[in-house]
């Protein structure tokens, strides 16, 4: 297991550099609170932090699961219906580039402070990288293999399952690296915009209360969560693509 080592390095180097900065520059705690102060917040507010983290994680994972279902459906549709991708692309790009604060205020007005708007933001952020990678991956399917399957009179679905999908898997996994961690950020942004709980809400609350120590604590928690998620994707990748290292 080589992967955790660089992560361990981050876990050691960041606090070290941080403390060093405190000693060298003596910044005001309003800008850079000392690590010990932040650690204190992490400890005393651990149960609240955990609760809010779970809220964020729940939104992120659920939204991400929905994004995957949509993206897979869309990719399947594009694969089976020739020209669908060209027709869909402008719609998807337009939808992708809607600025979130605008969407957010509309969503929260229409749907209230429910799970819905947060899931939609997560889906909007993560859907496109997944779909783009899937589409690209499906196209890398070996044409010779497809010809071979055609001579066996394989159905379109069989060609997808046996040739295109295996080719798309590495791309799909690569998408997770970006999109799964992105789902955490997206959930945080959504909460930051309109929620009453979750890490994003804590960020707003901490900043309006001028609690830089809590702000840093939340940021740390969010980073650790993102790193764990990234690690999880890496683990899944190693498992699924273990044939590459055989």
């Amino acid at each position: 297991m080589k992967a955790p080592l660089p992560f361990l390095l981050v876990l050691l180097a960041v606090p070290a550099a941080w403390q060093l900065a405190i000693w060298c520059f003596e910044p005001k705690p309003a800008f850079l609170p000392p690590p010990a102060m932040v650690a204190g917040v992490l400890w005393t507010e651990r149960s609240a932090l955990l609760g809010h983290t779970l809220v964020t994680l729940g939104e992120a994972v659920l939204g991400y699961a929905i994004a995957n279902v949509f993206a897979l459906g869309c990719a399947l549709f594009c694969f089976h219906v020739g020209g669908a991708e060209r027709v869909l692309a402008p719609w998807l790009v337009a939808l992708k580039n809607v600025p979130f604060p605008t969407v957010a205020s509309i969503l929260v007005v229409v749907m209230g402070d429910s799970l819905g708007p947060k899931l939609i933001v997560v889906v909007l952020v993560t859907f496109f990288p997944i779909l783009a990678n899937l589409n690209k991956g499906l196209k890398t399917a070996d044409p010779v293999l497809i010809d071979r399957l055609r001579t066996l009179h394989a159905t379109r679905w069989q060609i997808f399952r046996k040739a295109a999908w295996p080719a798309a898997i590495p791309f799909y996994l690569a998408a997770h690296e970006i999109a799964f961690t992105g789902s955490i950020i997206a959930a945080i942004v959504a909460e930051w915009l309109f929620a009453q709980r979750g890490l994003g809400f804590l960020i707003v609350q901490a900043s309006t209360q001028f609690r830089t120590d809590r702000l840093f604590a939340v940021t740390l928690v969010a980073s650790v969560v993102a790193m764990l998620v990234y690690g999880l994707v890496g683990l899944a990748e190693r498992r699924v693509l273990r044939w590459q290292r055989a």
């Binding site: 010779v144 293999l145 001579t151 009179h153």
Partner: peptide, 19 residues
Amino acid sequence: CRRGAIGVAFQRPALVPSR
């Protein structure tokens, strides 16, 4: 083809790399 009467092999092996 539908009846499985034909088998083909091309210059480049049509193998799935993950199998």
